[in-house]
Design a protein around this nucleic acid. Structure first.
Lengths: 127, 127
DNA sequence: GACATAATTCGATGATTCTGGAATTATCGA
DNA sequence: TCGATAATTCCAGAATCATCGAATTATGTC
């Protein structure tokens, strides 16, 4: 029942896909955009970088499986892939927190599991 | 009551301090070493890199506050700083998980908060 | 088919990073 | 003080990365 854990190699790749100003900006915007994601052009405009520069970074993130791309006519829409992010965080908690994940989970920060597990508002958003 | 959240700039710095093969190797070894940490020389030997190369990477990680250094005679001992790692993970959960941290916490992975929320068992272990 | 738009790939350039040799600093022991 | 050890800083070279202009591919519209 392990949540498939990343290898260090893959973890490095995923970390590198976020460890740069433009790239973290891209990802945060995609996260903020939610399930709809954003067209590549919108991200580029929002960040003020050239379209080809953005493609360069998106390619990295797609390679790392942190984002997905779907063509919609002339537009290519990007979305954050939360499952990969979960794997990355899982790796950090497992491998970088001394075997005690709880010491790296800011106390009471996230309502890890809200009192009522029944209906979480977040559903298919991050498939 | 926010757990001091990292700025994107600082988060990039912390991510970059891990997003490289040698550096992630360093950090994982420090984590595995536990509270005792490791002398710089031991890390270098364990990773098979030159001492000066290791210093270069350790400096990055120290700058990012992910490791701490204490001199012990001729040896300088390094330790992983879990509080910084917690901040990093906190940032990722808050800013990169669509406002719903739980979707990035591999289900039932860590016993996030044991049944009793009052007393956190993990304490001074990690400075 | 011809044209316009969205995005990527190609090519080049400047900047940054990673690495290790050599020199330097700090500590310990005799 | 001298020598040995641990680690860092200094320096240079090679490699990688980030950026953007130009060309290319893919799609939609007329």
């Amino acid at each position: 029942m392990e949540s498939t854990n990343l290898t260090p190699d893959i973890a490095v790749q995923a970390l590198a896909a976020l460890a740069q100003e433009t790239r973290l900006g891209v990802f945060r915007r995609l996260v903020a955009a939610g399930p709809e994601g954003l067209p590549a052009g919108d991200i580029a405009a929002s960040l003020g970088v050239a379209a080809n520069t953005l493609s360069f970074h998106l390619a990295h993130q797609a390679q790392a499986a942190l984002v997905t791309a779907t063509r919609e006519g002339r537009v290519i829409r990007y979305r954050a892939d939360f499952s990969r992010m979960a794997e990355l965080i899982g790796f950090l908690l497992a491998d970088c927190c001394g075997g005690r994940p709880e010491i790296c989970l800011p106390l009471g920060l996230p309502p890890t599991v809200p009192e009522t597990t029944d209906e979480a508002p977040a559903r298919s958003c991050c498939g």
